[in-house]
Computed example of a mutant assay.
Amino acid sequence: MSAPAPAQATPLVSPALGVFAAWSTARLTEVEAALEAALPQQAPAELGAAMRYAVLDGGKRLRPLLVWAAAEAVAGASLGPASHEAARRCACAVELIHAYSLVHDDLPCMDNDVLRRGKPTAHVRFGEATALLAGDALQALAFEQVLGLAQATETAALAARLGLCLAQASGHQGMAGGQAIDLAAVGRQLNLAELEDMHRRKTGALLRASVQMGALAGGADAAALAALTRYGAALGLAFQVIDDVLDVVADSATLGKTAGKDAAADKPTFVSLLGLDGARAYALALQQQAQAALHEGALPAPQTLHALADWVLQRSN
């Protein structure tokens, strides 16, 4: 595409989103309870404590909300028991994968960051070795959540499909591959296509997978899944463009992480390539592309996904 000229999860609410507030709060309550139940109270040494520290203390929970919204978009506002259970497990899984990626990204061998979600990063709090193991364990726990659906014959095929989707978003085709490109790009100026490719993998892949997994949990047909995949791809890239903007214009207290670190590390960003105004215009074009995909899909209940796309552009952290 060519570029156009903190102790608890915070509900994704802004004055412009009105009715979205109650929906977001209800889904976040269920997600927090499910994560609390899934994470171990006891594990060898400080492993359990490090896992819980990385997951339970804050975060926007956008990925779980995308799962819920996509499931409801294809099934209607009310999910049946089996779809609800699948969506709940997927919502936990994508947040656990996201948390693991943050723990590893913050390590000294990666981005070497000391602040995440307004508190010391996991390796600062627990040491590098425990943080590394906590990330590994969170990744395994994510797949345990999804593959738990395989215990029932009627959802075994769905579990396999969901597990494949999550694996592809997490591995060399997705997050891990994007992080490898990111590390190799320090000090280089990428062109727009290269920058898009990096962030469609590093950030966008899991956001897109969250939408896809929710759609599958809700029983999406091929046409709905294709439309929601387009939505997720555009939204995932828009999220990263806004992240690059906020890294420049917001402070660390607002972001809950170190502001200005991309420029300090000489990393290529959408702002460094397009400028602030250009990056904002690019994000708006991607948001409109995402919302157009919802209309193309003729979904029964796309309103919440539409509101989430609005929030991505309006967010302040």
Rank of each mutant, 00 (worst) to 15 (best):
V124S: 05
V124M: 14
F126M: 11
G127F: 12
A129T: 14
T130S: 12
G135V: 01
G135Y: 02
G135R: 00
D136Y: 05
L138I: 13
Q139P: 06
Q139H: 15
Q139F: 14
A140M: 14
A142N: 12
F143N: 03
Q145I: 09
Q145N: 11
V146N: 08
L147W: 11
L147C: 13
L147Q: 10
G148H: 11
L149C: 10
L149I: 13
A150Q: 11
A150C: 12
T153H: 11
T153D: 14
T153R: 15
T155K: 06
L158N: 07
A159V: 11
A159L: 09
A159F: 12
R161V: 01
R161N: 11
R161H: 09
L162D: 07
L162S: 07
L164P: 00
C165Y: 00
L166R: 06
L166K: 06
A167N: 08
A169T: 04
G171L: 01
H172W: 05
H172D: 05
Q173H: 13
G174A: 04
A176S: 13
A176R: 06
G177Y: 05
G177V: 10
Q179K: 04
Q179N: 02
I181G: 00
D182G: 07
L183Q: 14
L183C: 06
L183W: 04
A185W: 06
V186F: 00
V186D: 02
G187I: 06
G187T: 10
R188G: 02
Q189C: 12
N191H: 08
L192K: 07
L192V: 09
L192G: 03
L195G: 07
E196Q: 15
E196P: 00
D197A: 14
D197G: 10
M198E: 13
M198Q: 15
H199D: 09
H199S: 04
R200W: 09
R201W: 01
R201V: 02
T203M: 04
T203H: 05
S210Q: 08
S210C: 08
S210K: 09
Q212A: 14
G214M: 09
A215I: 07
A215W: 10
A215Y: 11
G218S: 08
G219P: 03
A220I: 08
D221C: 08
A222Q: 15
A222E: 15
A223N: 11
A223V: 13
A223M: 06
A224V: 06
L225F: 04
L225C: 04
L225E: 14
L225K: 02
